[in-house]
Design a binder for these strands. Structure first.
Lengths: 121, 121
DNA sequence: TACGTATTTAAGCAAATTCTTAAATAATAG
DNA sequence: CTATTATTTAAGAATTTGCTTAAATACGTA
């Protein structure tokens, strides 16, 4: 745990405390980074938003709404699913995806903010 | 605004409503994506968290805490600064960076969640 | 002025991302 | 079984990301 910053004003105790705090929360940072990196793409943020709003949608619906190819959407869905933030239900040939709301609860503030459409341009 | 999903059960009105909703909020999605893509990197999330906790830090401090090279940190800082989420103050040779809390308020829930360290491993 | 420190910038490279097109799976209907 | 529809998977290419090393800039001090 060596500290190398050589600034005269550097508060080495502060830096050590920061290191300890981050180390203690390392798993939390990794989990949160996984969610934020998934949500940090405009396409995927819209997919998450749509699933939050509509409960469930199939890849074809999402491709239509976002005006993108079905394989492109499917690959985004796969990424979100692999990360554990959505689940699927099959009805015949159609797969319906829905949000795991307990694992994405921290995005509620994000969705709320997005919905606050600016009145003044 | 044509809808092409050919599923028998497809609710074309629902899909049109979704398209309209997203279109109306397009700027909000872009702004939010900017913030989430910045925060969706473990290094940058830690930088934002540290600045939220410590008010201000210099690149050298952050490099020390995260055990990374100064140029690597500097380039992350530049990205966060270009996006408008931090500001800087110079004191001699040292640049202190601090969070624009009004522009990152939506991350408060993120920081709170990170701080809720799991008790049971 | 010259030197040391704090920081940024630039160049270069490996790895990751995100799309496209084409092929493979899965389920249903005739 | 064959054809059609819904979806996924794979391969490939263009772009972006994130580091490293080295050079440039900014400031303070002897």
């Amino acid at each position: 745990m060596e500290i190398s910053c050589t600034r005269a004003q550097a508060d080495h105790q502060q830096l050590l405390n920061c290191k300890n705090t981050l180390e203690r929360m390392d798993d939390n940072f990794q989990d949160m980074t996984k969610l934020l990196s998934i949500a940090g793409s405009e396409v995927r943020l819209k997919i998450l938003f749509l699933l939050n709003m509509e409960d469930e949608l199939c890849p074809c619906d999402i491709a239509d709404i976002l005006e993108m190819s079905v394989p492109a959407i499917s690959q985004h869905i796969r990424k979100i699913k692999d990360a554990g933030f959505i689940s699927s239900r099959r009805d015949g040939q159609t797969l319906y995806y829905s949000l795991m709301k307990d694992k994405t609860a921290v995005l509620d503030a994000v969705f709320t903010t997005i919905k606050m459409v600016k009145k003044i341009a």
